[in-house]
């Protein structure tokens, strides 16, 4: 086995934040990501924003996928983003949001630093492809 080969895998945190208990989608995505060869860390239900930040920083994930169906995205997502900034983890983390997000809110989230929002009907292939293409290149010297 060639050990010199870079064994980098795309690491994703699939996060359920806030009080919404609908995790079927998060489970399906976790599994699809796994089958795509990603390493998936699933947060579990009812997580606080600071837990998500803690997990994203410690696990050094390339991708943070936040699943919110409660409608509280406008409060929770900014908190997470602030937390990531506090630990210098905002710049090189691809942040995705999945859920039912009104168009106006989607614009606001993207302005905050969310790269893409996936609503109902988004296909797995589409999401996996998006992650593959947009997962941040890490500067090896930093």
């Amino acid at each position: 086995m060639d050990t010199k080969e870079d064994q980098r895998a795309i690491r994703c945190l699939v996060a359920k934040v806030g009080l919404d208990g609908h995790d079927r989608g998060a489970h399906v995505i976790s599994r699809a990501f796994r089958d795509a060869g990603f390493e998936v860390i699933y947060s579990g239900l009812h997580r606080a924003p600071e837990e998500i930040v803690q997990a994203a920083v410690q696990e050094d994930v390339d991708v943070l996928g936040i699943s919110i169906l409660s409608g509280a995205h406008d409060a929770l997502v900014p908190e997470i983003i602030d937390g990531l900034k506090q630990y210098d983890a905002f710049e090189d983390t691809l942040i995705l949001v999945g859920g039912i997000i009104p168009d106006d809110d989607e614009r606001d989230l993207k302005e905050l630093g969310v790269t893409q929002v996936f609503g109902p009907g988004a296909s797995m292939e589409e999401m996996i492809e998006f992650v593959r293409e947009n997962a941040p290149e890490r500067d090896p010297s930093v």
Partner: peptide
């Protein structure tokens, strides 16, 4: 596929937001 779901973190409920517990999941690649 080399993919993995790393689920141990879910159980770390007693150490919420405590950065002095540094928890890291690793996969057997």
């Amino acid at each position: 596929t080399g993919g993995a779901v790393l689920g141990d973190r879910i159980r770390m409920a007693s150490n919420i937001g405590d950065m002095d517990v540094f928890f890291r999941s690793m996969s057997a690649r």
